[in-house]
Design a protein around this nucleic acid. Structure first.
Ligand code: MN
Ligand code: MN
Ligand code: ZN
Ligand code: ZN
Lengths: 141, 141
DNA sequence: AAGCAGTTTAGAATAGTTCTAATAATAGAT
DNA sequence: ATCTATTATTAGAACTATTCTAAACTGCTT
């Protein structure tokens, strides 16, 4: 049997992260989570993650990539961002923050929420509860 | 020959609006523009507009609806909004403003830009020019 | 009226995503 | 370790919003 801790720091951490979220740490989920959470925050599309998995010799189907992304999102490990309606991004940064969107490249870059000061938020009609506030700054680049 | 001014106020106005934008006022574009701009600001999807056209006995193809929406957007008569990656909305309000998004119904509601005070905007990396700032407040309703 | 560029159209094509239903793996109990 | 129920994975089909194609048509200028 293989050692469960394949990478210095992230191996066990990722496994625990999945367990804590109530997600079975399957081989596929572990591999994908490792790609997603190995280093700093990222914004990835399903296709991107699928390709990175293939590059890392992780044998996983596209359907599983979608399943995992949605499962992770459902458990709060990721956050889904729709910007250009052609595809979604999944953000490993689930904290309160905003984005620069580079229209040419399709690249997303985080803006810490402290750097954007929103005031005078109107109350949601009918006292509806606010789920999330997204600020997207589109830049021509 | 029919009277060009079919509706009390909007007939000629819509025609001029298209001409001023450099768009040929074809039968289809006129009919669609009339639906879009007849009354106050709206947020419509392509499919919605297509259906409204059919209801108004305007014979227009779906491809033309898409063409018109994009042409209008390109000329600044509409603004395209992507929220949920399943489809885009086209907004007849092209001025600076933001949105409430009602997740349950998919409805969009304008927020005047004066009601949202954004301060401390970080400079775009590399001095890139800001195209637009979108604030979307998602509410659970 | 003629000619041309711009527009419309039906239907095919595309692409991201979801679904299906069969197979496989996991967790927990024995 | 084995058994079992539950959950996950998968290939490929299906779905859906949107775009493309290329042929027919129309608005505009002369
Ligand atoms: Mn999704
Ligand atoms: Mn579009
Ligand atoms: Zn982010
Ligand atoms: Zn609006």
């Amino acid at each position: 049997m293989r050692n469960k801790k394949t990478s210095p720091l992230s191996g066990v951490t990722v496994l625990e992260r999945l367990r804590d979220a109530g997600l079975r740490p399957t081989r596929q989920r572990l591999a994908l989570a490792k790609i997603l959470f190995a280093r700093g925050h990222r914004h990835v599309s399903a296709e991107q993650l699928f390709n990175e998995a293939k590059s890392s010799r992780v044998d996983v189907s596209l359907a599983t990539v979608y399943n995992a992304l949605h499962d992770f999102t459902g458990k709060g490990l990721l956050r889904e961002i729709s910007i250009d309606s052609s595809s979604s991004y999944f953000d490993t940064n689930t904290g309160n923050h905003h984005h620069f969107y580079f229209e040419r490249s399709g690249h997303l870059e985080d803006i810490p929420s402290e750097h954007v000061n929103i005031s005078a938020l109107p109350e949601a009609p009918g006292g509806a509860e606010i789920t999330r506030v997204d600020v997207i700054i589109r830049v021509k680049a």
